[in-house]
Simulated assay, not measured.
Amino acid sequence: MEYNIVVAPNLEVLATEVAGFIPMGWKLKGGILEHSDGYAQQLVRKLSDTVKLQRQYPAAVIKKRTKWIE
């Protein structure tokens, strides 16, 4: 399980930042927290969700290169 916390100075920026993580398989966890520097939102992602996402969108999978050294 992976966790991520997004911090932003206002709600509009927070929504924009969080929206960028949603297509990568991240899900919202809990509510929005208000603190002295602005707002924060916790995100969570399971490894199995990442694998499912890669199967749905094979073009998004990064191809690994191997270079043979002689």
Results as ranks from 00 to 15, higher is better:
Thr66Ser: 12
Thr50Gly: 13
Ala15Ser: 12
Tyr57Val: 12
Glu2Cys: 00
Pro23Val: 07
Ala59Ile: 07
Ile69Glu: 15
Arg65Asn: 09
Gly31Ala: 13
Lys27Tyr: 05
His35Asp: 14
Asn10Glu: 12
Gly31Met: 08
Trp26Arg: 08
Asp37Cys: 05
Gln54Lys: 07
Gly38Thr: 03
Gly20Val: 01
Leu43Gln: 06
Gln56Ile: 15
Ile69Tyr: 15
Asn10Ala: 03
Pro58Ala: 08
Val61Tyr: 06
Val18Trp: 02
Pro9Gly: 10
Pro58Asp: 10
Thr66Trp: 11
Val7Ala: 06
Thr16Lys: 12
Ser48Leu: 06
Ile5Leu: 12
Trp26Tyr: 07
Lys46Asp: 14
Gln56Asn: 12
Lys29Asn: 04
Ile69Leu: 14
Val44Asp: 00
Ala19Ser: 15
Met24Ala: 10
Trp26Leu: 05
Ser36Trp: 00
Ala60Ile: 10
Gly20Tyr: 03
Lys52His: 00
Glu17Ser: 11
Gly30Ile: 02
Pro23Asn: 01
Glu17Cys: 06
Val44Gln: 06
Glu70Cys: 05
Ile62Glu: 14
Val51His: 03
Ala15Val: 01
Gln56Asp: 08
Leu28Glu: 11
Gln41Trp: 02
Val18Gln: 08
Glu70Ile: 07
Gly25Asp: 01
Thr16Gln: 14
Thr66Lys: 15
Asp49Ile: 00
Gly20Lys: 14
Glu2Met: 08
Asp49Arg: 02
Arg55Gln: 14
Gly38Lys: 03
Ala15Glu: 08
Val44Phe: 11
Met1Trp: 05
Lys63Tyr: 04
Trp68Gly: 03
Asp37Ile: 12
Val13Ser: 08
Met1Val: 05
Glu34Cys: 06
Val51Asn: 04
Gln54Ala: 15
Val6His: 03
Ser48Met: 06
Glu70Phe: 04
Thr50Leu: 04
Leu43Gly: 08
Gly30Met: 00
Gly25Asn: 02
Ile22His: 03
Phe21His: 14
Ser48Thr: 09
Leu33Lys: 15
Gln54Met: 12
Tyr3Gln: 10
Asp37Gly: 11
Gly25Tyr: 08
Pro58Phe: 09
Pro23Gln: 01
Arg65Val: 15
Leu53Trp: 06
Asn10His: 10
Asp37His: 08
Trp68Tyr: 09
Trp68Asp: 02
Gly25Arg: 09
Ser48Gly: 02
Ala8Ile: 03
Lys29Leu: 11
Tyr39Met: 14
